[in-house]
Design a binder for these strands. Structure first.
Lengths: 223, 223
DNA sequence: TCAAAAGTGTTTGTTATACACCCATGA
DNA sequence: TCATGGGTGTATAACAAACACTTTTGA
């Protein structure tokens, strides 16, 4: 049997909460308890009894008042890089939140990804990891809907996809693909944005689960 | 400042080494040091100074004699599930190895995924996680080549893809896609398998990096 | 009545899939 | 010479992208 005390370490759970704010993604930061001038990702020491996912959800709930609509573990970090809690190991999570329904508790603020505050090296790696995961999951599951309120216009949905993919999309093609996938259904509400024809509101309601039987994907970037 | 000793825990790095053995994937197991009748995934207590990736690579090298051709962190596990080393947290990695060039050290054996030995609950989760990651990465990077020796026939490559995807592929279409992706180049060697025309040997040599500008992927399974 | 945004039918070009066939070798 | 697996040209089907157009509102 090994001697546990000689190999012990201190570990934390850190959460990267992401939302779509206007025309940019934004990440939630907390004022550091030790240095009120600094900001950090929300984090806590892990409880032995709790699963990591539960801890991450609890941390998110503490700063947002409600749990994220989607959460996933990014990775464990244990390089020598500095961490605000001086943790030996930090397990990082990424969570998505619709901007409309999320109201950060006092001391927490959204920062656009293009203009983040100074950050400990390890938490900077976490932010980068979260962006990579979002990009990757976008191609594997319809996580974009996790950033939208329960009802939304197709224009909003397309804008969000354009933001996440960083490229313009063709309106007609976008709607055709959406229709073929049976992911949304129209409500009987309409929203007028001031100028132009009012848009019908839709809700996320995935019906069929037909995975397109696509061929082998060789058209990939070499890592 | 927090009291580190009151929140300390013991953590390990575990490695799921995967190879393609005949017509099935196989995973490397080590005879348990305490109970010689039991098998477990290779694992070690993490060293504070080393990065997690380095530890995982070292563990793999210890049981295989050489590092894996590809390695990636699966996840950190900290649920209540049992672990052979009684770790509070285990960080799991998945590694790929070509079967032809890997020779496990004594006390280590490949088990086909369809016929694994009894396993601690946490390590079972790791095996499941490794399969999920391989399946997912297959659609994101050409990791199949990491399971092949430096040169191989297109028949072997196709068989491997059929194994990984669990479905038959059309020969001509497979080769057309492969050619369009500029991932392999022919060597001037040929291999005769006894029956039928000898096959030309190819090597993995990705040239272009043209990522196909595919549209929005809505055709996804809902998680 | 014009600008602006929503929403839709049809065409075009690209790509995956399949069919059909030839080639080379061992038994 | 036949069965077996390697290898390739050509047709067909599926799909993404684009074009062109109508609809509905506020100014």
């Amino acid at each position: 049997m090994r001697d546990r005390s000689s190999k012990s370490s201190y570990h934390t759970v850190d959460v990267v909460l992401v939302t779509a704010m206007g025309n940019e993604l934004a990440i939630l930061f907390t004022r550091s308890t030790s240095d009120r001038e600094r900001w950090s990702l929300p984090w806590k020491a892990a409880q032995g009894a709790e699963t990591l996912d539960a801890t991450a959800t609890r941390i998110a709930q503490d700063v947002l008042g409600e749990p994220p609509t989607w959460i996933e573990q990014i990775s464990a970090f244990a390089d020598g890089k500095r961490h605000p809690g001086n943790a030996d190991i930090s397990v990082a999570f990424v969570g998505l939140v619709p901007h409309e329904t999320a109201s950060p508790r006092p001391g927490n603020t959204w920062f656009p990804v293009g203009d983040l505050p100074p950050l400990s090296p390890r938490q900077r790696s976490m932010v980068e990891g979260s962006m990579r995961i979002i990009q990757a999951r976008l191609d594997q599951a319809p996580i974009a809907f996790r950033l939208l309120p329960p009802t939304f216009t197709l224009g909003e949905l397309q804008q969000l996809y354009e933001l996440l993919l960083s490229k313009r999309l063709h309106k007609a093609s976008f709607r055709r693909a959406l229709q073929a996938a049976w992911l949304v259904e129209p409500t009987d509400e309409w929203r007028s944005e001031g100028r132009g024809r009012p848009a019908q509101l839709y809700r996320y309601a995935p019906k069929k689960r037909r995975r397109s039987h696509r061929g082998v994907r060789f058209d990939l970037l070499h890592p």
